[in-house]
Amino acid sequence: MARALSLYVETNTFLQKLDPMVKLLYILLSILLPFLILPYRVVGLTFILISCLLLLYGKVFKKVLPLLGFSFLILISIVIIQGLFMQSNRTPAFTIDGLTFYKEGLLYAWTLCIRVLDVLLAFALLVLTTRPSDLIQSLVKRGLSPRFGYVLSSALQIIPQMMSEVGSIMDAQRSRGLETEGNLWTRLKAFVPLIGPVVMSSLLETRERAMALEVRGFSAIGKKTFLFDTEMTLLDKILEWVLGILLLISIIVRIVWL
């Protein structure tokens, strides 16, 4: 049975209980600060270190490893391309097999790598330790349209459901003699008979679901309430203030500096 699309891991540390807004603020800081505050690379590395420690503390570090593995492939190619070919390359650093790497390019690649890893880990922290529904609910509470919130949270469950439907559609068409395996042409020809029913039945289902939502007061006027309306804890509030002030200070510092 298809489950909801979610990378959330339930490990019950304080990270899981933290208000999603605090984590969103943390992402914002980790993206902006390495651009605003000198020395950029040191700030970026600090964030990477903090994120790693938090991920370890939240017992979700293992889940990040495949993600890191994948991003290393891209990062290495950045290092190679910038190190060899960046326009401002002047000072040779070292030579392998007749290929000369330049200092300027390597330094630039190093900065890029730090930024990518920094953002990646901050997002991983949010995604791995937050239930998608909690995140959406806290956004709706802060003014996101409930309709848009519904679209986001239902997509996480409906997409896996649609994938399992594709399985039965494939069976139905193969039963009518449709070859779905073989060369590219055969596969392309099989595309319409497979995608047609997927589109049609999701349209039908969407209409039915819209009616079912309406009769449960989805468009009712007035303020909605939330079943799990968790108040922000003192820690949440303190962290929100600390991170917010930090962000403000760095923006001011940056403006004054220039």
Partner: peptide
């Protein structure tokens, strides 16, 4: 053999017609 090849001998009507109709 394959399900597609067996289609000449065995016909299977699925429960949900929406799983197959595309024309």
């Amino acid at each position: 053999t394959t399900a597609a090849k067996l289609a000449k001998t065995v016909g299977l009507v699925f429960q949900n017609p929406n799983d197959q109709i595309f024309k």
